[in-house]
Design a protein around this nucleic acid. Structure first.
Lengths: 350, 350
DNA sequence: GGCACGATTGGAAGCGCTCCCAAAGCTACG
DNA sequence: CGTAGCTTTGGGAGCGCTTCCAATCGTGCC
């Protein structure tokens, strides 16, 4: 712990619980001690004396009092409104959360976490009621989200993940889903496929809708029809399994799935019907989660560095807190088209 | 100040930020408003009047001020000092965390989370510095853990998960690892196996060591030798793969693995060497995580209801907070021997 | 009608900290 | 040696809430 009691009362182990204790111990005023602790101006000699006492006293400032007096606490909220039962096994969220926790921990910031244990209204209420928070990061995926609305209309600094909104002055970290979906669809077209199907993500989610738009744009530009080549999915493997069956029936020679999980499902179905990937049906996913490269054949997909997204969101929020008047931080993360054997067969890429 | 004059003004949407705002709006004192909010005594008429204002005013008490004045915040800390990269995919921790978040959310308590992003010393420091907390739950697995020590010697109410210690007056939720390991080993012996091997968990962890002890106790009681039948593992699938190879070489006719993940690894190895489970080698795990029943053959294992552990820990902590003077809460959760085809072949159990 | 006693209520003192502001101390210069 | 212009320091007023305590109000009873 702290120094051993050796010579005199001076070096005894004191417990200083408050600034006043410290003031008494050092002989300066509480205000001065506070200044030393917070890096305010103080004479070098004073500073040293206070710091020496600080060192052998195991004093910890009271965070609640700090927050009350200064408005800052060093704690941010993180809202990932997804049922915990789905959240933990999902590489998307866990990578995001890793990035957030990594950056926050590195910066010494605390974190309060809200998962989808309750309704969105309850969550919102709880978050707003938790006045310890300096700000919040929310991973929002649906187009309409009361938590996002509530947070944005509160005075709590907020950073959105995956919920870019042109019409708002919100800070966010997101990717250009539309462009990326366009790119991967165009890739499938460029290798000679004309009946490129799309298994969508959950309708009503930002990512789901934007990827649909990107897909349609690419098809349209190539002069290809797609009205009978889209099947609604919901980002799950299961939806990939069933939707792929439908697309095969309609003669698809390539399938772009809204994420890797549904692509894995689609792959199963294609295999089961005796077709080869990519010879008969080329396949592509989205996200490039861990398992994408381990599929057989490895999956062509769009890489978004999810851990980076999380870190970037945390960074954006901390910057926002450091400089409140500042304009919203809007970060558009790059994506990368990762071409593997599920679309270009022979050539071992990557 | 006294009541509002006109009836019209009465029903305007006011924003009351502080108790004083409310006091002004209702015409009673701040103290009375506080009493109404916190369920103190107040005349029925007063109570109604205040509550009516409360309803149309969207007032939220300031949590920092509350904590400072009363010492209570309704926020507890949860420490799961595991690298996030390992934590999220691991069913053990995610189920535990689910249980904790479920119960806390249900009880309206907030949660701050610390994962293994930093060193244990840093984590401890950070948790103790976070004086918002009313208490903390820590999932501790190693025999020696500075975070546990630090927490227990602080005055922060603490509940341990998986770290039963007879020599301390700590609250905990745990299982009897030794007894359960004994039981499952005895089961393997009872089906006629005499060379029962054990792939241990990480040495130095409470669960790992206690399961070793239980295994040895059972073997010893049956008059069987085990000195060449134990191989150190570390709870991973990989350690199961390699350790099993070694045990097969030494002629094991059954293997008890310290957890299901390493059992899955062991199963692979056994299969790869052309042996049958359970005919040639009976296999058992520990935990009964999701995938245990889906292995081929389904895995004999020890079920511990991990979600329940989490909920129980949360409950214990909240009780402790509600009644501080109370003796430590010590909860020993039941385990259940789940016998499936990996040990008893033909009979389809479960 | 007066009084004792319990139910309500308001005043005020903190909780531990930050930060403004003015007092004090110091330097250097005329 | 006085003073302007620094830097350093302490006093004190909050931040928004809880809670003790005493004042006030009402009630029932003699």
């Amino acid at each position: 712990m702290v120094e051993k009691a050796s010579d005199g009362a001076q070096h005894e182990l004191k417990v200083a619980r408050t600034l006043d204790d410290l003031a008494a111990l050092t002989g300066v005023s509480r205000a001065t001690v506070s200044r030393v602790i917070n890096g305010g101006s103080a004479a070098e000699a004073t500073r040293r004396r206070v710091q020496e006492v600080l060192a052998r006293t195991s004093y910890r400032p009271n965070a609640a009092a700090r927050k009350l007096a200064s408005g800052r606490s060093g704690v941010v909220g993180v809202v990932v409104h997804v049922d915990p039962h789905l959240l933990f096994p999902d590489p998307y969220f866990s990578q995001l959360l890793q990035g957030i926790t990594d950056h926050l921990a590195e910066q010494g910031a605390g974190m309060m976490l809200w998962l989808g244990n309750r309704t969105k209204e309850q969550t919102l209420d709880h978050v707003l009621g938790m006045s310890f928070l300096d700000g919040v990061i929310i991973s929002a995926h649906t187009l309409e989200d009361p938590v996002v609305d509530g947070l944005l209309s509160s005075d709590l600094p907020t950073v959105l993940i995956g919920h870019r909104r042109a019409d708002r002055t919100a800070s966010y970290v997101d990717i250009d889903n539309e462009q990326a979906a366009d790119a991967i669809t165009t890739h499938l077209i460029s290798i000679g496929r004309t009946r490129v199907g799309h298994i969508t993500g959950s309708r009503g989610t930002v990512a789901g809708e934007d990827r649909v738009t990107g897909y349609q744009r690419a098809m349209h530009r190539a002069g290809l029809r797609f009205d009978r080549l889209m099947v609604d999915g919901d980002f799950t493997r299961e939806s990939g399994v069933t939707s792929a069956a439908e697309l095969l029936e309609r003669g698809a020679d390539a399938i772009f799935c809204a994420n890797d999980a549904s692509a894995a499902g689609a792959l199963e179905t294609i295999r089961a019907s005796g077709l080869r990937v990519p010879e008969d049906v080329a396949l592509a996913g989205f996200d490039d989660v861990d398992f994408a490269v381990h599929l057989d054949p490895p999956l062509t997909t769009v890489r978004q560095a999810l851990r980076q997204h999380g870190m970037e969101a945390a960074r954006a929020l901390l910057q926002l807190l450091g400089d409140p008047g500042h304009a919203p931080r809007r970060v558009l993360m790059p994506t990368e088209l990762v071409i593997r054997q599920s679309s270009v067969g022979g050539v071992p890429h990557e």
